[in-house]
């Protein structure tokens, strides 16, 4: 072992690192004991309450409804959008909501716009809309893997170049959140989370206490979000619900070509939450993607249902279930 390493192994005997110098351990401990706030138990509780308090959300309430369809992540998939609008009609949904991320991944971004308008889809602004409307150069995903950055940039640029400025400015005018009433329950609809448009709420990394605090802060009975691409539902101990409604633009990394949307129903005693699979003409979309020169990696995902790029966002558990 070199002298340098030897000294690293012995230098701290009885000494603490204090910034850039060494100080006797006791001196460091005495200093840390003097620093920081000291509150009584009652003051701590008051401080905690003050910290969690939030201004009341003034987003206007829509509804009341007894049955609505909600989905996210269209990703230019106009064929899945047609299919989900058909499904909503069959469910006799009173309203259809889209939680944002209209572009990326799929072909011909402009095609989804008339469908959203004609279908009277009440749409939120996702981070993709924010980037497109703001004229950003790329999606700012900042992956570690250069391969992921390559594909993310490619799909963002394709969407940005093939969207009209009218469509982009329409996106920019979409609201970042909505509140709806289903039965007697008030639900908050956001893209990522109530706090951040691009926060990921994955099943395995959204603990119950965290979700309860979010719902307390927003004074709502339920929260609907998307952004991750993976759907899940948690019925909380407080009786409230959190639903990641999933995306209709690409499969849920589950080895199936189908995509997912959510049906909400007022069932009086409880909120009926059904996460439903949706079949659509994915071979036709794959063909369009080929004609548009989009990467084979994206087309493969449509066909076999496994994500092939940008998997870095997945938490350990979701990644372990993933093929790639």
């Amino acid at each position: 072992m070199s002298d340098a390493t030897d000294s690293k192994l012995t230098v701290h005997r009885g000494m603490a690192t204090w910034g850039e110098r060494l100080a006797p351990l006791e001196e460091f401990r005495r200093a840390t004991a003097r620093v920081g706030r000291q509150l009584s138990q009652a003051e701590r509780l008051a401080e905690q309450q003050r910290f969690l308090e939030q201004e009341r959300d003034t987003t206007p309430l829509e509804g009341p409804y007894s049955r609505v369809v909600v989905f996210g992540g269209v990703y230019n998939n106009h064929l899945a959008l047609e299919a989900v609008l058909d499904a909503a009609h069959k469910h006799r949904a009173e309203a259809v909501y889209c939680l944002g991320d209209l572009g990326g991944f799929g072909p011909s971004p402009e095609k989804v716009w008339p469908l959203l308008l004609e279908g009277e889809v009440r749409t939120l602004r996702g981070n993709y809309e924010e980037s497109l409307a703001g004229g950003r150069e790329d999606c700012n995903c900042g992956y570690t893997d250069p391969r992921d950055n390559h594909f993310a940039t490619l799909s963002y640029r394709y969407t940005a170049e093939n969207c009209s400025s009218d469509f982009k400015s329409w996106m920019g005018g979409l609201p970042p959140r909505r509140r709806i009433r289903v039965g007697r329950r008030e639900l908050l609809l956001v893209h990522g989370s109530p706090r951040q448009i691009n926060e990921f709420l994955f099943d395995s990394t959204s603990p119950v206490s965290f979700l309860e605090v979010l719902l307390d802060q927003e004074s709502c009975d339920g929260l609907l979000c998307t952004h991750t691409g993976l759907h899940w539902h948690r019925h909380l101990p407080s009786g409230r619900d959190v639903v990641n409604v999933g995306v209709i633009g690409r499969p849920a990394n589950d080895g199936q070509p189908g995509v997912w949307y959510t049906l909400l129903e007022d069932r009086d005693a409880e909120l009926g939450v059904e996460l439903l699979p949706l079949e659509y003409d994915h071979p036709a979309l794959a063909l369009e993607m080929q004609q548009q020169g989009l990467p084979q990696e994206f087309i493969d995902t449509l066909r076999h249902g496994w994500w092939t790029t940008c998997l870095e966002i997945l938490p350990a558990r979701e990644r372990s279930r993933s093929r790639y």
Binding site: W18, G19, R34, V35, G36, L39, E47, R50
Partner: peptide, 17 residues
Amino acid sequence: INEPQGKMGDALAETLE
């Protein structure tokens, strides 16, 4: 953590400022 000035309190409630 090697700067005593980086310490904010003993309970989390004391470190919310």
